[in-house]
């Protein structure tokens, strides 16, 4: 019995001493051979005309060789503006990103974009910007990132597929009361009364600003069919009769519709949001619309559904206007 106790005590002592042993740090051994990795930096749905951004990291031990070239091959050739940055970036003491050139400016050839490295580069992370082309609308796009080393080795990394949405995007339209206050969703453009009179079927919305005593009217978007009380003081050109259905929205500050960095959000309006929106019983007017609010709409013929984001509003003595951005989906 006593022996057992002594053995247990010894065991505990050994455990205690080994448990307190300090583990010394060892520099990790880097992997041999050419290495690569990719992350997608941009968020939100892929929309034609916008960029998808990736960061492609690659490295080779200096004693094994240098980087020779990096290539990104897209399944659908990128639009003009697609490039692989020839700099890697670090952040300086002020928090500002500083680029260091590591190779020649990228060259696009068909679906491939290539940077050829300078002579002495062993590791770099390059940014790839894929400008989504019209051909990709409604299709999937995928990417193969590859790097070649001076040791003759080539490694690659596949990303995707990423579905490209059917929707279209237009930013920074300015509607002004009373000069250019007629909005066409089909054209995603703003027109004056003369154009509206000549092309009445194209006009889906009219912008107006009114300061009316006793009520909160302010900035409004109304369909041509809206009751006259919702468009006071406006004599519509003949033939305007599109009954555009509208649903007011708040807190849908789409990151892709925001101009500048005034409003940082992680909200994105996607195809499915427009497809599944129920416009039954929706009115044909939206009174008292505010900056950073929005409007879901469906055109009278049901061909288009859209989300209008109101970037900013101005109502000074000399100017009544609204800056808007639109995501539009063709329904039929």
């Amino acid at each position: 019995m006593k022996k057992t106790h002594i053995l247990c005590l010894l065991g505990l002592l050994i455990f205690a001493f080994t448990g307190c042993k300090e583990k010394e740090y060892a520099v990790p051994t880097p992997k041999s051979g050419l290495q690569n990795d990719v992350i997608k930096r941009s968020l939100g749905p892929g929309i034609v005309g916008l960029d998808m951004e990736f960061a492609y990291a690659m490295a080779l031990l200096p004693e094994q060789g240098k980087l020779v070239s990096a290539t990104v091959t897209a399944s659908i050739a990128g639009a003009t503006g697609t490039y692989l940055d020839n700099k890697f970036y670090s952040t300086n003491s002020s928090g500002v990103e500083v680029g260091t050139v590591v190779g020649s400016a990228s060259v696009n050839s068909g679906n491939a974009t290539t940077v050829t490295y300078n002579a002495d580069i062993s590791a770099a992370t390059l940014r790839y910007f894929y400008r989504i082309p019209e051909e990709a609308r409604g299709r999937d796009v995928s990417f193969t990132f590859s790097v070649t080393g001076s040791n003759g080795e080539t490694v690659s990394y596949k990303m995707g597929p990423y579905p490209i949405r059917r929707m279209e995007l237009k930013k920074g339209l300015v509607v002004i009361d009373p000069t250019t206050s007629y909005l066409s969703i089909a054209d995603m453009a703003v027109y004056d009364a003369t154009f509206a009179a000549a092309n009445p079927t194209k006009i889906d919305l009219i912008y107006l600003y009114r300061a009316i005593t006793g009520v909160t009217f302010n900035h409004a978007l109304v369909a041509p069919t809206a009751s006259a009380e919702y468009r006071p003081g406006i004599s519509l050109p003949a033939g305007l009769n599109n009954k555009t259905k509208m649903i007011k929205a708040w807190d849908v500050r789409d990151q892709q519709l925001v101009i500048g960095s005034a409003v940082a959000t992680s909200v994105f309006v996607d195809d499915v949001d427009l497809e599944q929106r129920n416009f039954t019983d929706a009115p044909d007017f939206a009174i008292n619309t505010r900056a950073e609010s929005g409007i879901w709409l469906e055109t009278a013929d049901g061909k288009y559904r859209a989300y209008i984001y109101i970037n900013s509003v101005v109502n000074t003595a000399t100017s009544k206007q609204m800056t808007i951005s639109i995501k539009r989906l063709t329904m039929k």
Partner: peptide, 9 residues
């Protein structure tokens, strides 16, 4: 309710 309120929704 405010002038211009969509009473159906």
């Amino acid at each position: 309710v405010l002038f211009g309120t969509d009473l159906k929704n």
